[in-house]
Computed example of a mutant assay.
Amino acid sequence: MLSRGMLCIVIVACSPTALAQPVEGADGRLTDPAGRVLYTFDRDSAGASACKDECAVQWPPYAAPPDASAKPAFPLLRRDDGSLQWAHRGKPLYYFAGDVKPGQASGDGLGGTWHVARTRPAETPDSGPSYSPKGY
């Protein structure tokens, strides 16, 4: 019987949308074409994944098909097992096994090292005008 994490890898690996180039959402978040949020890992170096074995069970790589064509914003990297993984600005892209529906981003900030992949910084909500009295 497959564990939940292994089942997630099987589902992601078999999904046709999992192989397509990442998509930029209206808020700058990167997703797969089905709307599943993608993440980056601070411990990765440009062009190389540090997330292997048990890490890759919780954070499945965003796979690319063997015939994928790299784009300037979305290069490809070859993992240790020979498979291809999409990247953004050289950083490998991943799913989070804890996200169960499109748009969910429950892995953002986990361990202080996992972040939603973005094409631009997240906007912070406007807290309104600041008050600065004159003469004080």
Score class of each variant (00 low, 15 high):
Leu30Asn: 07
Thr40Met: 01
Val10Lys: 07
Met1Lys: 15
Ala64Arg: 01
Asp44Asn: 12
Asp27Pro: 09
Ala117Met: 09
Gly5Phe: 15
Tyr136Ala: 14
Gly28Thr: 04
Gly112Ile: 14
Gly107Gln: 00
Asp53Gln: 09
Lys71Trp: 14
Ser49Asn: 03
Ala73Asp: 07
Ser132Leu: 11
Gly90Asp: 15
Pro65Trp: 08
Asp42Tyr: 13
Asp53Thr: 10
Asp53Arg: 04
Tyr95Met: 04
Lys71Ala: 09
Pro133Tyr: 13
Arg79Asn: 07
Asp81Tyr: 14
Ser130Gly: 05
Tyr95Leu: 06
Ala105Thr: 04
Thr40Trp: 04
Gly109Asp: 07
Val57Phe: 10
Lys52Arg: 13
Thr124Ala: 08
Phe41Asp: 01
Gly107Ala: 03
Ala70Cys: 06
Ser15Cys: 15
Ala70Tyr: 13
Trp114Ile: 09
Gln85Phe: 04
Gly109Lys: 05
Ser106Leu: 13
Gly98Ile: 10
Ser3Asp: 08
Phe96Glu: 02
His88Pro: 15
Ala122Tyr: 06
Ser45Cys: 10
Asp44Phe: 14
Lys91Asn: 09
Ser15Ile: 02
Arg118Ser: 03
Asp32Glu: 07
Pro22Gly: 06
Gly98Ser: 11
Ala34Gly: 08
Pro33Gln: 07
Asp81Phe: 13
Pro65His: 09
Thr113Tyr: 08
Arg78Gln: 15
Phe74Pro: 13
Gly128Asn: 12
Arg118Trp: 06
Pro133Glu: 07
Asp32Cys: 03
